[in-house]
Design a protein around this nucleic acid. Sequence first.
RNA 1: GGUACCGUGGCCGAGUGGCUAGGCGGUGGUCUGCAAAACCAUAUACGGCGGUUCGAAUCCGUCCGGUACCUCCA
Length: 488
Amino acid sequence: METHLHIYNTLVRKKQLFEPIAPPHVGLYVCGPTVYGDAHLGHARSAITFDIVYRYLKYLKYKVRYVRNITDVGHLENDADEGEDKIAKKARLDELEPMEVVKYYTDRYHTNMDQLNVLHPSIEPTASGHIIEQIELVKAILKNGYGYESKGSVYFDVEKYNKDFQYGKLSGRNVEDLLQNTRQLAGQEDKKNGFDFALWKKADSRHIMHWPSPWSEGFPGWHLECSAMGAKYLGEPFDIHGGGMDLLFPHHESEIAQANAARGKDPVKYWMHNNMITVNGQKMGKSLNNFITMDEFISGDHPALTQAYSPMTIRFFILQAHYRSTLDFSNEALQAAEKGMSKLFEAFALIGSLKPSNESSFDISVHLNALESAMNDDFNTPIAIAQLFELSKLINQVNDGKTKLTTADIEKIRLVFNTFLFDVLGLLPEKGNQNDQLVDYLMETILELRKQAKENKDWTTSDRIRDDLAKLNIQVKDTKEGARWSFK
RNA sequence: GGUACCGUGGCCGAGUGGCUAGGCGGUGGUCUGCAAAACCAUAUACGGCGGUUCGAAUCCGUCCGGUACCUCCA
């Protein structure tokens, strides 16, 4: 399987040729959501970024096992290890069973992902379903001497680990700096060093999610689940681990440390990190309280939104930027994306009615190659989309009789659009098709009436038909061959 | 303070030593009964200052401005 796919590997901070550990198989692990709130634009970006990775790897004929976890325990509240489990806290406030909260937000997350046309992962494991694996991992770390027990909790001994391995190899930090910069944080009494992180945490009386363990009735530390589940389903090491840039430190750094401490080897060959969505240049996130949920985008019901945006518009908007760049949210940018995307779909819809010629005035394969090399260059979707715009321009030119294409090349263009626009980029025209035949028939009748009015130079009637249809978001387009129509 | 990164035309956003990215918006034109759509043409650019080079938006230095991580976060 020869490809030229290059992936930017955060571990070495440059693009590398992608060489799977055991081709044609590829293991892909992505940090999924913590299900204690609705998905927002940032979640959408991460999911879409790695959806593209998944789709393109499959396009390249790899056999991909894609694991994306659901975090339903473990992440602690603010005061580091003093805090309460996020989901438990939410449950207490709402007087719900924790698993009720988990189920509620997991379902909502799935709905949003389906709306965005994000493919389902091969496996979607939950942290609460892998407590045993996580306990085993803690045992292995303890056995190798890289952890210590303290008052029923177990911590990772970063200083000890750093003597034998390198803590900070992913994030570019060093332990000396960390020592100086984490000293003042509260709630560190039980730990040898401030930067030591919890592997197992003893539950206090308020804590309603807990499990038995050799050390205490408690719950796993927050980096453990990905280490345990990644290894379980993808092996050690596996190919690609993805997530948001904000997870780079300490989460992914600690995953590397845990794997080395337990088994003496790095867990992952290629680390990929998507950048953040920003609002007025600032990260969109919970703590800044400036996030907009997917449902709010779809309904338009948010003070920052001047209109509703379809999930496909959001997907397209996200794909128009490279995943490693920050992407700034604005209504203007969303609206530009909406218009641009519909232009692509309109061009695609025209392919079926193009008139073939005996020769082609341009070479389709040039564009196909350009699309592949864009995707091979660290999944450069903006360039790929630019290529699709080039193609749609050509389609329109053929439609206008300004350039020529053979029947075979028209089919080739259709195939390229199908493959890249729909399969690889995962964009779908979203006009409902429930009443297609009826609508087509009605439109045929209406446009026939308008044609007659025009022939009679009854402009009042013909314009009224046009304007009324516009109110229904139906656009009439007069061409040399007669009127066409489409949904706006 | 430490670490990583960014500053591109009205807006969004690729590119990273020489060859117009692209989209939205603007302007002019073709088409049209008038529009719209489409097509054609076109303007507006690489934060400041130095340096390297035949040549820099792209490399180096420096200054200015901004962001992320170091606490849960996609």
